[in-house]
Design a binder for these strands. Structure first.
Length: 604
RNA sequence: GGUUCCGUAGCUCAGUUGGAUAGAGCAACAGCCUUCUAAGCUGUGGGUCGAGCGUUCGAGUCGCUCCGGAAUCACCA
């Protein structure tokens, strides 16, 4: 295989030739960036297009005649270009079908295409994602987070980086104490076993109970004339929660034991959800450990006068020089806040991995937090903080607005996954194509399709944009969807199964020196875009680019599949070409979807 | 109010460094299964790309000003 061949793109070669043409025709040395070669738009004839406008100042002629002259020169001196046409200021060049076939044969496999994406200098990259709180189950927002994080991991490692998946579990803090307290007060010893509830859901239930009971207390204070903030502080439940946090930080055995027990329930629940989603982690950090280190870092910085102490003995950073605000790092009672532990986690990670990059997959609601985190680390003298990158993604909203746990409008992750699989089952059974499968095999296919639909739905959207999820209309299985791409793949697999049955083998050597038709070239043109799409996805942290690429390829292939017979073709060379194109389509779709964490069924 | 992000068809979304007549899917309507899987394919209708001004041969894309929406500015995480 020759990755160099793949890297030396046709555009580059054309650009060189055009530059040569301009030099000879107009006696001018044109700066490279003025030679704009791009793919020809679909509705015009040609493969590559030169935008001639920037060259007019050298030709001192109309766009049309400049295009004509360059076109004539190219076609005379560069035989790979078989024809050209000029429309307005655009010179469309047609590349010979033979070149496309030659290109395709040299490419040989999707693995080679992925191989050509590898970066020259691989780095060590940490990808932090998921970051759950242990007081409630995962919801749709976490699903977007997990899918993005996992996909970024696969994309970056496909490009040759050493990627480590990390997860910081927010297992301490006042919110955790809330569910613990409510369980103590109202739980009557309920456990996941006794209730039959998934552990994370059970703990989440008590978090909700706390909020409800606390709200009643606050309201009664407000009704007796207290203002909202004071009422919140005075509510006995809130007081107790704060006391519990203090006890926890002091290592009180009873509190710590309760905490351990309830956390173990939650972890069992999370593991189940992660497993269903198909995501995993190489290293899990716990805030309950890293916050201590965070505290130490804060106190060190205080002693170096980087931070300052307030008269109530709370500790702050002054970030006004950085264009930010004052930031609290330790409360007046000495307990840690969110930022404290994130400082500790970042330093721990750097010490452990000496990463080049540390990517935080965290929602855009925390943009400010990560701004501050980076600025703080820098201020404290950790120069590696330049490698911190907040991969900020948009919120998932419901048609009526933001999801709110309090109002019960949260789309639960486990529920959603099961609903998707159920829908896949319904659709599939109605189509009735899998009658010869065992129930277990069918379930496996339904799972792949249901999750494929969900994952694709989430990942096809540009990560940085907010997206809307409509639970009523739910997720489609037709059109620009995961199942559409899976279906295309299953069709290709089916062709090869049939081929095997009829003893037809694919023979690449037969297709060299062939001339390709328009539809074949259409497919090869899309194949060619795979590596650059992967690279763009890696550099721009955008799995959506790969998702939309896969859709484009699947659509093109389905047209091809519809218009031409593959196995029924009598000309052996043509049949081999079509088989080879089918195989490549299947391979690329498989690879692309793999990078999204989407599995592909052999049949559906 | 400050900061950041967003606004493209009825709905959900694409639209590489500015390039030709702004694209898909869903929904609606009309077709295509005796032939490799119809979760497919083909066609029709649907747009002042939030508004305006500017830069440019050329703006959905860049700049400015508005309008509309979101996030954030906690001794919550």
């Amino acid at each position: 295989m020759e990755p160099e061949f793949l890297k030396r793109k046709m555009e580059v070669i054309l650009r060189e030739n055009i530059r040569e043409a301009v030099k000879i025709l107009y006696n001018s040395d044109v700066p490279e960036e003025l030679i704009q070669v791009q793919e020809t738009r679909k509705d015009f004839k040609g493969d590559f297009t030169l935008v001639v406008f920037p060259l007019l100042r050298f030709s001192k002629n109309t766009p049309e005649s400049t295009g004509e002259k360059i076109g004539e020169y190219i076609i005379k001196n560069f035989p790979v270009v078989s024809a050209f046409n000029v429309i307005k200021g655009f010179l469309n060049l047609e590349i010979s079908g033979r070149w496309w076939i030659e290109y395709f044969v040299k490419t040989a496999s999707a693995d080679n295409l992925v191989e050509s994406c590898r970066v020259a200098v691989p780095g060590t990259i940490l990808v932090e994602y998921s970051s759950p709180n242990t007081n409630k189950p995962l919801h749709l927002g976490h699903i977007r987070n997990n899918l993005l994080g996992f996909s970024i991991y696969r994309i970056l490692s496909s490009c040759g980086h050493n990627v480590i998946k990390t997860n910081i579990v927010n297992d301490r803090g006042i919110h955790i104490c809330k569910s613990m307290l409510a369980w103590q007060k109202f739980g009557n010893g309920e456990t996941p076993e006794s209730s039959g509830m998934k552990g994370d859901h059970l703990v989440g239930k008590y978090y909700v109970i706390f909020e409800k009971e606390c709200k009643i207390q606050i309201e009664s204070f407000v009704n007796s004339g207290m203002d909202e903030n004071a009422a919140r502080n005075a509510a006995p439940m809130m007081k107790e929660a704060r006391e519990m946090l203090l006890k926890w930080e002091a290592g009180d055995k009873e509190v710590v034991d309760l905490w351990k027990m309830m956390n173990s329930w939650v972890y069992a629940g999370f593991d189940e959800t992660y497993h269903k989603l198909g995501v995993d982690f190489d290293k899990i950090y716990y805030e309950s450990e890293t916050y201590k280190h965070g505290k130490k870092i804060v106190l060190d910085a205080l002693s170096k006068k980087i931070l300052y102490k307030n008269e109530d003995s709370s500790i702050w950073a002054d970030l006004t020089e950085e264009g930010l605000d004052q930031k609290l790092l330790l409360r007046s009672d000495g307990t840690a806040v969110y930022m404290t532990q994130d400082l500790g986690t970042a330093v721990d990670r750097y010490n452990e991995y000496k990463f080049d990059k540390n990517i935080y997959v965290v929602g855009n609601e925390q943009n400010y937090h990560f701004h501050v985190l980076k600025a703080l680390l820098k201020k404290m003298g950790f120069n590696w903080s330049d490698g911190l990158y907040h991969f900020s993604y948009g919120m998932v909203e419901l048609p009526e607005g933001k999801m709110k746990s309090r109002e019960g409008t949260v789309v639960d992750a486990d529920d959603l996954i099961s609903e998707m699989i159920d829908t896949a089952r319904d659709v599939s059974l109605e189509l009735g194509k899998l009658s010869d499968f065992t129930p277990a095999e069918k379930d496996e296919i339904f799972r792949k399709i249901g999750l494929g639909a969900l994952k694709y739905f989430i990942l096809k959207v540009d990560p940085k944009k907010n997206m809307t999820f409509n639970p009523v209309e739910s997720i489609d299985f037709n059109g620009n969807t995961g199942p559409f791409i899976q279906y295309t793949y299953a069709r290709i697999k089916s062709v090869f199964r049939k081929a095997e049955q009829s003893g037809i083998n694919e023979n690449l050597s037969l297709i060299t020196n062939m001339n390709a038709g328009e539809k074949e070239i259409g497919l090869i043109r899309i194949f060619r875009k795979f590596p650059e799409t992967v690279i763009a996805a890696a550099e721009g942290y955008s799995p959506a680019l790969i998702a939309n690429y896969c859709y484009e390829l699947a659509r093109e292939y389905n047209q091809f599949y519809h218009d031409f017979s593959i196995l029924g073709e009598s000309d052996e060379r043509v049949r081999n070409l079509r088989l080879a194109l089918s195989r490549m389509t299947g391979e690329i779709l498989f690879k692309g979807m793999w990078m999204l964490g989407i599995e592909m069924p052999e049949r559906m």
